[in-house]
Each structure stands twice: as C-alpha cells, then as structure tokens.
Simulated scan of single mutants.
Amino acid sequence: MKIAIVTGASSGIGKEFVKQLSTSKHLDEIWMIARREERLNALAKKIPTKLKAIELDLLSVECMEQLKERLEKEKPQIKVLVNSSGFGKFGKFNDLTKEEINNMIDLNCKALIHMTYLCLNYMKKESKIIMMGSASSFFPLPEFNLYASTKAFVVHFSRALHVELKKRGITVTTVCPGYVRTEFFKVAKDTKNPNTCKNFKPMYESKDIVKKALKDSQRGKDMSVYGIQIKILRLLSKMLPHQLIMWIWLRIK
C-alpha cells in the first residue's frame, strides 16, 4: 500500500496538502494526522479519495508510539511525508509562557524530527519528504524570535538531510513561505502584546504555496520559495548585515 502522511492536516497549509495530494493516482491512502478529529472527519467526507483520519497529538510520546505500532502493523510504503504541524507566537521572548516555549520547540522541531525518523523506515527510492519552514528562518527576528529560530533549525536540518538521503533516492524539500492566509495568525497574535506585529503584507494563499511545494518536491529541489517578494527577501538576507535587517524589521513589522 502506497500512502502519504500529512501532519497538521486539519487546517491551513496541511489541509491544502491533503486536498492537492488527493488527486494523485500514485497513492492508495492519505493518512491525515491532527489533534482535531472532527475536522479530519469533515475533510474526509468532502474528498472522494481514501483518506484515513488519525487523531494524534504529536506532543505526546504515547501518540507517537501509537503511530509507530500502526506503521509496524500495516507496513505501508510512504511515498510522501508532509511535516506541516507547527505554531508560532508574536511578541517578545519574555511575553511567552513556559508552556508556549516548550510546545513551540517540541512541535516545530522535536515532533518533526521524530516523525521523519519514524517514517524513513518505510520510505524507498523516489519517496518525498516535505518540511514546513518559513521565510522567518532567513534571519533573526526580534519579537518573533523563538518561532523564527525553530524554523531556522528546520531549514538547516532538512537541507542537510536532503544531502544525506541522496544515495537512497529520497528527497527533502523545505517550504519557506511568507505570510499565508490561515488560522496561524489567530493563535500567533493571542499573546500579552497582541499589537506586536500588524503589517502582514503581502499575504499569500495556501493553494499557491502548496502547488509550488509539490512541484518543487517532484523536481527534487531542497527548498521551495513562492512569490517574488519572498525570493527577494531571501536574497537580501544573504547580502545585507543581519543587524540592518533586524533594525528594518522592527520598524515595519
């Protein structure tokens, strides 16, 4: 059985990955992983493809163990793994709670690593891994510091893994979007200082980010960046001193 696994599948970019992967003729099932089972079930009813809703909290060691047991039992061939789960918070580092700090690091980094490690045992030549990075990973971002730092970790880990897996014929594509119209902002701005960031332009659509990500993954690219503004931002991050970029960021955020 050939499957795709998508984490964070109940909303936003993860949900869009499920929609676009559902048109593939090379997949027997799509395993949708998220905490909100009712949303997964609602999505499964809308898409006439064999979808499997799996309610898992990736922050839970027990849930990861449940997934391991399911994989050992069914022994699928994982053709595509999309690590889309994650969340962020705007605001100064001291504005964050201890729980927010731990959860952001654990979900954005640790869960992604353990999910990848687990799934690699079921991947063969031409399998694809897609990691959700962020344009915020291009440079340090005061008042969006921890989220940007976790995404910088994701980018470095994923690009190195892409090289490590070349001999196995498995590719790793890191997706680094700018602002995307999703529920992310509702969570990100729910802090002690909700006015920290207000300038969310340009705003991109999930369908466009995912369409390019899947295309770049098929081409074996190690990074997917959508939008001329974000491509310019990435270029500037290599050319300008980061002190200057941070100074500009604090005045336009």
Rank of each mutant, 00 (worst) to 15 (best):
K198S: 12
L58V: 14
N83C: 12
N108A: 05
A152V: 03
E62A: 11
D95K: 13
S134T: 14
G133Y: 01
K192W: 06
N145Q: 11
Y179H: 12
K167E: 15
E126G: 10
K75R: 15
A148S: 15
M131E: 07
K167D: 12
S158D: 00
V80F: 05
G133W: 00
C197N: 12
K75G: 04
L96R: 07
K75N: 10
P177S: 05
K98V: 11
V80H: 05
L96C: 07
E55A: 07
P76M: 11
R181P: 09
S134P: 13
R181K: 12
N83E: 03
I170T: 06
F93K: 03
S127I: 01
E143C: 09
S137Y: 04
L96M: 14
L112I: 03
S158I: 00
K89A: 07
H156I: 09
P194Q: 08
E126A: 15
L81W: 01
A135C: 13
H156S: 12
K167L: 06
E74I: 14
K68I: 02
E62K: 13
S127G: 07
K189A: 10
I130C: 12
N102A: 14
E100Q: 09
N195L: 11
F144L: 09
Q66K: 14
L96D: 05
A188V: 07
I101K: 05
K124A: 05
V172W: 00
I130R: 04
S127T: 01
E100M: 11
N193C: 07
P140W: 08
V80L: 13
H162A: 04
N145D: 10
V154I: 13
V82C: 06
A152N: 08
C119R: 01
M104E: 12
K192H: 14
S149L: 02
E183M: 10
S84A: 15
F93L: 13
C176R: 02
N199L: 05
T171K: 12
T171Y: 01
H114P: 00
I113F: 13
M104K: 06
